[in-house]
């Protein structure tokens, strides 16, 4: 084991986690500003110039609130729920290549925490773990509304995971690799995957909305039916963790969509091979982050435009529209690949 390697990875993990937290923090601010813009009002503007200290004020408020643990709840699991939600939200960031490798003092430093050859499956494993935070939290609260919301959330997540996986298989057939770095590098040299997979991109995007519990798929926290959703009994920073995990999920899944379909750290109209190592890395990081922020804005735009689905509509869309569409997409992609290989 070489210590520089461990140090380098630890540093990278710290940076990625910090960046995700800060982005998630400011995503709440941007969302409220954006909602204000769409609804023709100001949004938060009291704390600091243009209200940019609002996320800090919100965080402080959550920290200082009284912490209530319901007396009939299962205390251990009640605390475990938000922790799991936060943990699974952060874990996906480990396989995303944030930019091309840089050279520091003769060492090539890869800006990806772990380049494992099963990258996409790892993402799936973490996504399938994501429902546990919600389910455990909802169940441990010992509240009917929380339990119903948690079960709704879990069934929604596992329904949309299927279509998500099927749309990903088409990308895998194109790239022939499960490593996110290889998929990105193919897009840097060739065309972006969205050109080959427009339908797959759409399906994946809709499923990502559903997996993040964003409107119009925010059934687990439908206030009008379930009071407040699975985190009804939570207060103080534990509630903050649940809400925060949602924004981290949104950031990471937008980064993942950008990596899979929109070329990752590829800056359009720029030939990265002409740039030196570190400036290429900076350009790459800027490209990936601007794509991610664009997608986050689209997520928010959708939230403040579309009303919430009814529960049966949600299930019908998932099982009867998206899964057959994704299957057809997969078959057509396979057929075309076979056809071009013969010709």
């Amino acid at each position: 084991m070489d210590w520089e390697f461990i140090l380098e990875k630890l540093l990278l993990i710290t940076v990625v986690v910090t960046v995700s937290l800060v982005v998630a923090m400011y995503a709440t601010y941007i969302e409220r500003k954006f909602a204000g813009f769409i609804q023709d009002r100001y949004g938060p503007d009291r704390a600091g110039p243009f209200g940019i200290l609002q996320p800090l004020a919100d965080g402080l408020k959550l920290f200082f609130k009284e912490e209530v643990i319901p007396s009939h709840s299962n205390k251990l699991l009640f605390v475990l729920g938000p922790c799991l939600a936060m943990l699974t939200a952060m874990m996906t960031s480990a396989v995303i290549p944030w930019s091309s490798p840089i050279e520091i003092g003769g060492r090539t430093v890869s800006l990806q925490i772990a380049d494992i050859n099963i990258g996409i499956l790892y993402v799936f494993g973490v996504v399938s773990m994501g429902v546990y935070g919600m389910m455990i939290g909802g169940w441990a609260s010992n509240n009917k509304f929380s339990l119903m919301a948690a079960l709704r959330g879990a069934s929604q997540a596992i329904s949309y995971e299927l279509a998500m996986g099927l749309s990903l298989i088409a990308v895998l057939m194109l790239s022939g690799s499960l490593s996110l770095r290889v998929i990105t590098e193919q897009q840097v040299t060739g065309l972006w995957n969205i050109v080959y997979q427009p339908l797959g991109f759409l399906i994946f995007f809709v499923c990502a909305l559903a997996e993040c519990n964003r409107a119009p798929f925010d059934l687990p926290e439908a206030e009008s039916e379930l009071n407040f959703g699975y985190h009804q009994e939570y207060s103080s920073m534990k509630l903050g963790f649940f809400l925060f995990a949602e924004y981290i999920n949104m950031f990471i899944s937008c980064a993942l969509i950008a990596t899979l379909y929109l070329g990752g750290y590829d800056m359009p109209f720029v030939n990265e091979a002409n740039l030196s190592g570190s400036s290429a890395a900076i350009v790459g990081a800027v490209a990936l982050f601007s794509k991610t922020f664009f997608l986050i804005l689209v997520f928010m735009w959708i939230r403040w435009t579309l009303p919430r689905f009814r529960y049966d509509q949600l299930m019908n869309l998932g099982w009867k529209s998206l899964i057959p569409l994704a299957l057809a997409n997969m078959l057509i992609t396979g057929a075309v690949i076979l056809w071009t290989m013969k010709g």
Binding site: I118, L121, Y122, F124, G125, S128, M129, V131, Y132, M135, W139, A154, I158
Partner: peptide
């Protein structure tokens, strides 16, 4: 990873 996705992720959710 398949053990995690299928058993820990899908089947255990149904148990729960």
């Amino acid at each position: 990873i398949v053990n995690i996705i299928v058993y820990a992720g899908a089947i255990m959710v149904l148990f729960l």
